[in-house]
């Protein structure tokens, strides 16, 4: 377990220069996420084009893992239909939590979103898994809000 497996260069880069940072206004859906353990807070706003996410932005305040994860997620899901986003969520969740999940980029390369594999180091730091998954849970909540469910803040605790 080495620090550079957690803080890979791509993660540090996305933390320093988060992509799609901000808020869409108007947006088709908004959700707030909160990790009470460390105080990470983020808001995801998105617009839909039919069944696909046409645009997505996030803002908030968090550690490098949570900011980088949200930034990479924002790139990965834009333009994707719901079903693909759901599948991606499952694979990222497995990547973060399952010891035997493929950690190399080949899993994702076929989708053209190889960067997400950079999060594989997080699973060696159990206290940080929630940092990386917060944005995905918040995205799920935003998508659920689209269907008219009552918006409620998402907490990873």
């Amino acid at each position: 377990m080495e620090l550079n497996e957690l803080y890979r260069e791509v993660i540090l880069d996305h933390n320093r220069h988060p992509r799609n940072f901000g808020r869409l206004d108007p947006a088709d859906a908004l959700a707030n996420g909160h990790n009470p353990l460390c105080g990470d807070k983020l808001t995801v706003t998105l617009r839909m084009d039919g069944d696909a996410i046409s645009d997505l932005k996030f803002d908030g305040n968090g550690c490098a893992i949570s900011v980088a994860s949200a930034s990479m997620m924002s790139e990965a899901v834009k333009g994707r239909p719901r079903a693909e986003v759901d599948a991606l969520f499952d694979r990222v969740h497995a990547l973060l939590t399952q010891a035997d999940a493929p950690s190399d980029a080949t899993l994702f390369r076929s989708d053209g979103i190889g960067k997400l594999a950079a999060l594989s180091g997080v699973r060696e730091f159990p206290a940080r898994v929630k940092c990386a998954s917060l944005c995905w849970h918040t995205l799920n909540a935003a998508l659920a809000n689209l269907q008219g469910a009552a918006p409620s803040p998402i907490s990873t605790e």
Binding site: C38, G39, A64, I65
Partner: peptide, 22 residues
């Protein structure tokens, strides 16, 4: 430039136990 939570992880890696959070 370093969130306290990241600081906590890096310090732990160096054997230093501190509290990071609210």
């Amino acid at each position: 430039g370093v969130h306290p939570h990241d600081l906590g992880t890096i310090l732990d890696h160096e054997g230093v136990a501190i509290r990071a959070g609210h």
